[in-house]
């Protein structure tokens, strides 16, 4: 076994802010405690509260929100016995309750680091085609807390889609835009989702997506893949672009690549594996490509655009 698969030495997990008794909470608390040394405070659902040394999570729940099932300290779940420290950010959530926009914002802020979340929440991403690429890509970006998603598709959910696309049996017959918007609202209700229920043409693309930071091409039809890239290169010079080609079958995972065509323009796939009889589109490999696309969208939003 290569070193790649060995446990990380010196800690329970590589995350700096992992909750573990041996490690305690990490850097957010350290930063806050410096600013609040004068009077000890903790932050509970974004309100500051005087901190009494020795207070445990269970005490806080009893006092602030009896019945809260889930306690998140500095972005990570904490047990009732955990002792709170000065500067801790605490979120008390009852099972089944929808966190407020501010709560979601803080939870993502803690999870993804402030620098990442601040950019993502301001971002607008266009997704053209909501099939095996576009639907998982949209879910990934909603989980990242992307600010605004423009979802374009003309099709409805069919039984044959369910082998790879992020839809459910009870959504068969719904427009994909409507079904996916409903799913995204269950993932993160604070992402602004706009649906474009239309069969896009080359001429439409600059008009619909003039405001996007990054445009993701997730079409099935190779003519539309070409049309979309042409349209973006000619008429959307300000937008990042992540296209796709060659995602069918169950070929080598590592043949799926993210290739840079030019600054801020990328194509994901192996370039060859066409959907055809004997080489169908399947959840695992299309999913690999969809998440290559999702990560490349995130990288572009964060200003990463290196030549390899």
């Amino acid at each position: 076994m290569s070193a790649f698969f060995l446990p990380v030495a010196g800690g329970c997990c590589p995350a700096k802010k992992c909750y573990h008794p041996a490690r305690r909470w990490g850097s957010i608390r350290d930063l806050e405690s410096r600013s609040s040394k004068e009077g000890l405070v903790i932050f509970v659902n974004d309100q500051s509260l005087p901190h009494e040394p020795g207070m445990r999570v269970a005490d806080l729940v009893a006092r602030m929100k009896p019945g809260a099932d889930v306690v998140i300290i500095n972005g990570f779940p904490a047990p009732p016995t955990a002792v709170l420290a000065d500067g801790d950010h605490c979120w008390l959530i009852r099972r089944g309750e929808v966190p407020s926009a501010t709560e979601m914002d803080h939870l993502l802020h803690a999870r993804h680091t402030p620098g990442v979340h601040a950019v993502l929440r301001q971002a607008t991403v266009g997704i053209m085609g909501l099939g095996g690429l576009g639907s998982p890509l949209a879910v990934a970006l909603a989980r990242m807390g992307a600010g605004r998603l423009l979802l374009a598709d003309y099709d409805m959910v069919e039984p044959s889609n369910l082998n790879r696309q992020h839809y459910f049996i009870d959504q068969i017959g719904l427009p994909k835009t409507v079904a996916l918007a409903a799913t995204l609202a269950r993932v993160n209700p604070y992402v602004a989702v706009e649906c474009i229920e239309a069969r896009l043409t080359e001429g439409d693309i600059p008009r619909y997506f003039a405001q996007v930071d990054v445009l993701a091409e997730c079409f099935d039809d190779p003519a539309m893949k070409a049309a979309a890239l042409r349209s973006a290169l000619r008429d959307l010079p300000g937008a990042g672009y992540v296209g796709s080609s060659g995602v069918a079958g169950y070929g080598d995972n590592n043949a799926i690549l993210t290739q840079r065509l030019r600054p801020r323009v990328y194509i994901v796939g192996d370039g060859e594996s066409e959907a055809q009889p004997g080489q169908g589109l399947m959840a695992p490999r299309v999913g690999i490509a969809a998440h290559h696309q999702a990560n490349q969208v995130v990288r572009l939003l964060l200003g990463v655009d290196e030549e390899r």
Binding site: G131, L133, D220, P222, K225, S245, A248, G269
Partner: peptide, 8 residues
């Protein structure tokens, strides 16, 4: 030339 194959 950038060629695309179908599937998504």
């Amino acid at each position: 030339l950038i060629r695309f194959v179908g599937g998504g």
